[in-house]
Amino acid sequence: MQNLEKFSAIYQRASERKGGQEILESLLDKPLSPEAIKQIGDDRFLAEFTQKVFQSGFVWRVVRNKWPDFERVFFEFNIQKILLMPDEMLEKKATDPAIIRNYNKVKTIRENALMIEAVSQEYGSFADFVASWPTNDIIGLWAYLKKNGARLGGNTGSYGLRAIGKDTFLLSNDVVGYFTQREIISGSAQSKRSLTAIQNSFNQLQQESGRSLQEISMILSKSVGDNFIE
C-alpha cells in the first residue's frame, strides 16, 4: 500500500490530537476473544442485528429507549419462538405502539432468525460461526450477512458485529475520508475494490502494530477529521 502511512505515524497523530498517549488509550475498546464470543447466545446476535436495523436511518437514542419493549414484544429474541410466529402475529406485533412501528423492519427479525438458525444447524451455533471467521477477511463476513441476512448490508452488519464483540473495523466517515484522501480508494467505500483495499490496509496495519482491527479503526478515526481534544 504505497499511500498507506505507517501505524506509528497514525498513532502519533491521534495521540497529539487527543492530548497524549494515556488519553488516547483510555478512549479505546478491545473486542472479545473468540472464546468469549462462542459463549454468546444466538438470541443476542438476533437482538443486536435487529437493533442496528432499526437504528439505520433513525434516531439511535429513540431505539435504545424503546429496547426493553422490543425485548418483551419479541420473546427476548428467542430464535425458536420467533420462527414459530405466523405472518398474522408478526403483522400484529408491528402495530404495537411500544416499539417502532415499521413492518418492513419488523419482518427482518424473522428473516434474520432464519439465517441464524440455518448457520447454527451447520456450525453448531451462530456464535461459533462468527468466532471462527478470520479477521483478515472480515469483509467476507460482512458480505455473508448482506447476502444471507435481511437489511444487514452497508454499515448495519458491521456495526452489529462490533456491538456483539467481534473484532471488526468500521467504515465511519473519518475512516472512509482517510482512505479517500490517501487515494487508497476512490468512489464508493462499499464497492468490492474499495473494501478489498481497505481490508488489505488494515491487515498491514495489524501486522505492524499487533493490535486488533477495532483498536486500529478507532485510532485511525481519531487521527483525522474534526475530533480534536475533547
Rank of each mutant, 00 (worst) to 15 (best):
N148M: 08
T135Y: 10
W133F: 15
L114A: 04
E117G: 00
Y123F: 14
E122C: 00
R151L: 15
V106E: 05
T95G: 03
D96V: 06
D128T: 09
N136R: 08
I109K: 04
N148V: 02
K93H: 10
P134K: 05
T108F: 07
T135W: 02
F126P: 01
R110P: 00
I100M: 10
A131I: 09
N104M: 13
A94C: 12
Y103P: 02
Q121N: 11
S120N: 06
S132P: 02
G154F: 05
G153K: 02
L152H: 00
R101V: 07
V119Q: 07
D128A: 11
A98S: 15
D137G: 03
E91Y: 08
T108G: 06
A143D: 12
I139Q: 12
L152M: 13
N155T: 13
N112S: 07
I100T: 10
V106R: 01
E111V: 03
W142I: 03
N112D: 10
S132W: 07
R101Q: 14
G154C: 04
G153D: 11
S120F: 05
D137Y: 10
I99R: 06
V130K: 09
A98C: 07
W142S: 14
P134R: 05
A98K: 15
W142R: 14
N112H: 03
I100W: 01
N136S: 11
I138P: 00
K93Y: 10
F129Q: 12
N104T: 12
T108K: 09
R151I: 06
N136C: 04
A113L: 02
Q121M: 09
G124N: 02
A150I: 03
R110C: 01
F129R: 03
G149Q: 00
V130I: 12
M115R: 01
S125Q: 01
R110D: 01
R101E: 13
T135L: 06
N102Q: 14
L145M: 13
T135H: 08
V130S: 10
K93G: 06
Y144I: 13
K147T: 12
D96G: 11
T135V: 14
N148L: 08
S120Q: 07
G140A: 12
R101L: 02
